[in-house]
Amino acid sequence: MPRGLSMHIGINEIDETKYGTKGELKNPENDAQTMEGLAKAGNFTPIATLLTKDATSDRVAAGLREAASQLSAGDILLLTYAGHGAQVPDKNGDEPDRCDETWVLYDRQFIDDELHALFATFAEGVRILMLSDSCHSGSVARDISFSLSSPELERTFDTNEPDQVRARVRVLPQDAQFRNYQREQETYDEIQHSLPPLDQQDVKADVLLISGCQDNQTSSDGVGPNGLFTETLLKTWKNGAFEGSYSTLHRRVTEAMPFYQTPNLFQSGRSTKEFLGQSPFSI
């Protein structure tokens, strides 16, 4: 019988000594704990739930290595992230926009090259379902040209949804990204130089990402207990009463979201139609 493991990351604030800001958010820890509950209800075994100060680069990497050591063909990992998204300059030439996308962990940014290198340690035939409720996360992510404060975007909120306008968005401000990269440039550059470019990484697992927004959008931190994407996904899931596939779930969530935040569905690794067509959160 296939085995299911889960790992959940939720970061309400980051290390001010490393980033120059606490980057405070309201709901990521709630998102992680809620998704842990969903995983347990579906008979997944949580191997780590990393909240704020515990969500360090070493612990995230260790959790993924532990999952890779335990899972074999046919098994599944549910990986969820809630927090800021950001970018660092691309140093190994694998990004068309010359920027590598990151998760903003408590101690430092976790570069997409690192994430995919860890995915490459999973056995062939393992399924990895990743939910990323973070800004610019369409493919975790390619472009961060929009922010909620941009005049063009503010005009589109002209607005019958004032609460959503006031909600924080999950993107590390550009000035904080710049300061953090200046302070930690040697670390970030060495990470990229030490890893193969994305197009040379042989990921044999079947990776399916459902993200909170498109690459050029921001994800709202929400006005309730969860981020807007996580809240909408949970309402659509209806405690397991939802019927359909991952592609259907993505479509229904997208239909329920406001026009300015469109969840993305993205496959990588050994992409299969079978995984896409399975009942969501099933082992």
Rank of each mutant, 00 (worst) to 15 (best):
A48S: 07
A205C: 02
I191W: 15
A62C: 04
A55F: 07
N43A: 13
A73F: 06
F44N: 09
S245I: 07
H250L: 06
T49E: 14
G10S: 02
M1E: 12
G20M: 03
M130V: 02
P162K: 12
F178N: 06
G85K: 06
Y106T: 10
F110H: 13
P173F: 09
D58T: 04
I76H: 14
D100S: 01
M257L: 00
Q174T: 06
E154F: 00
S282Y: 15
L77Y: 10
T80E: 09
I11V: 03
Q87M: 00
P28T: 00
S69G: 13
A123L: 11
G4Q: 12
G212T: 03
A48N: 07
T52R: 13
S150A: 01
S211P: 10
R98I: 09
V171R: 09
N239Y: 01
H8A: 05
E274P: 08
I128A: 06
A82L: 05
D133K: 03
Q182S: 01
L131V: 07
I47T: 10
C213Q: 04
A117R: 09
Y181N: 00
T262R: 14
D143G: 08
E124I: 04
H84I: 14
D58A: 14
A120Q: 00
K238Y: 04
E154S: 00
L172P: 04
G85E: 02
A176W: 05
L233F: 11
P196E: 10
S139N: 13
N239T: 03
V104F: 11
N216V: 14
A120E: 07
S245Q: 12
P263Y: 02
L38W: 12
G138R: 02
S211G: 07
D206G: 08
W103E: 04
V88T: 06
I11G: 05
H8G: 03
F281H: 10
E190M: 11
D15E: 04
Q164W: 14
D94V: 07
T56I: 12
G74D: 05
K204D: 06
K273T: 06
L38F: 06
K18I: 00
E255M: 07
T159S: 15
V169L: 13
R183Y: 08
D189Q: 08
S147L: 04
M7H: 09
P2K: 08
T230L: 01
F275E: 13
N92R: 02
R179Y: 07
Y260Q: 08
S194D: 09
Q192Y: 02
M257T: 02
Q177S: 00
D15Q: 10
T45M: 07
R251Y: 02
S6K: 04
A62P: 11
G63C: 10
K204A: 11
A256D: 09
S132Y: 04
G277N: 15
S149K: 12
F157E: 03
S149Y: 09
L208C: 05
Q214H: 00
V253L: 03
L129D: 07
T272Q: 12
D189I: 14
V60E: 14
E29I: 05
G240S: 03
G42F: 11
A41L: 05
Y188P: 02
D175I: 13
L115C: 03
T218F: 15
Q87P: 03
R252L: 14
L71Q: 01
Q33Y: 12
Q200Y: 10
Y81D: 10
T49C: 14
F146Y: 04
A117C: 13
L234Q: 08
T49M: 12
S282W: 14
V88K: 00
P96T: 07
L71T: 01
Q214S: 10
D31S: 00
H136W: 04
I128L: 06
D112E: 10
L131P: 06
